[in-house]
Amino acid sequence: MRAPAPAYASNDGVVDAARAALGASLIDAVEHVGEVALHVKREALYDAMIVLRDTPGLAYQQLMEIAGVDYPERAERFEVVYCLLSLTRNHRIRVHVATDEEKPVPSVTAIWPVAGWLEREVYDMYGVLFSGNADLRRILTDYGFRGHPQRKDFPLTGYVELRYSEEAKRVVYEPVQLAQDFRTFDFQSPWEGAAYVLPGDEKGALPQAKGAPTPLSADAIQKADATQSATKAPAAPSEPYAKKDATSTAQSGAGEPDPGNQKQDKPVESDVVPTKGGGQNQ
């Protein structure tokens, strides 16, 4: 029989213990859907992480992940989220820090060396600066990449594109050139319908087949068997060369003793050598 998976420890007392340990450096503590989130002041982040790691009853020894979130409508648009794990208590917690494009966040590489690469990812994707990181450079994007792709205002196509140039015999960067302009989408529910008329929607206003349901009123409906096309079908490309029906027996050769298919009526080919007996085609 397989052993059951270990259950995480409950959140009972975690928020109160964090409030007592962090004190004034804690902005807010929220427990939602079974998870605890601590919002900490940016300048007090380093000391708060040491407290969360070394305080008995908390003991979050391991940094699992650092993530970034972008809220363009806020004054401090970025949030840096630290996911901590307590190995002794089997419990997880999140620490949130708010910042903008210019204010750096204290690095925690001196507490957890793994934060070096994680902070580089947040810097590469969002442009958040970390003071104290000795190797703060891009880690996911290519050399010379412009902008930060996880920001909400970053264009979906980017600013430059790369290709291999046969003339230069190397990879070159060029400004993005779109084959067509961006289309404007209203992100409306397809079941509600758009406020504008799309190409092809005019077909929905025509009368449908006889007996089929239609959104038109009874006055606007035409009977299906009464609507006939008065226009002539377009001529085929081979119409000038098509066979025509004979209008009289004189044109068809009917009743003639020699309608033109006798031996003497066939053309003589100079390249054909007659064989003995004439042959079928001679």
Rank of each mutant, 00 (worst) to 15 (best):
D201M: 15
L52N: 04
L85I: 05
S131Y: 11
K223I: 01
A48N: 06
T157I: 00
E166H: 07
F185M: 04
S217N: 01
L156K: 04
S217K: 05
G204M: 13
V108N: 09
A29C: 06
A212H: 06
Y164Q: 03
A44E: 15
A110P: 12
Q150K: 08
F154P: 02
Q222I: 04
R2W: 02
D124T: 10
D245I: 07
P259N: 07
D186W: 13
P56E: 03
L136N: 13
Q188D: 08
V160A: 01
A7C: 11
K244V: 15
R170C: 12
P207D: 15
E102F: 05
S217M: 02
A59I: 04
I27E: 12
A233Q: 13
A224F: 15
V273P: 13
K266F: 05
P149T: 07
S86N: 07
V108M: 09
A220M: 05
A230D: 15
V176K: 12
D225Q: 06
V30D: 00
E161W: 13
M1L: 15
Q208A: 14
R92W: 05
A254D: 15
V108A: 12
D265I: 06
Q150H: 06
A67M: 08
V114W: 05
A209S: 14
F187L: 14
D245E: 07
L26S: 04
E202K: 06
L129G: 00
Y8F: 00
I111A: 07
L198P: 00
Q282W: 12
P106C: 04
P215C: 10
M1G: 11
G200K: 05
K203F: 08
L140Q: 07
S86I: 04
V14G: 03
L178W: 12
S189Q: 06
H148L: 00
K152R: 08
I221F: 11
D153T: 07
D186Y: 10
Q262S: 11
G34Q: 14
F182T: 01
A98S: 00
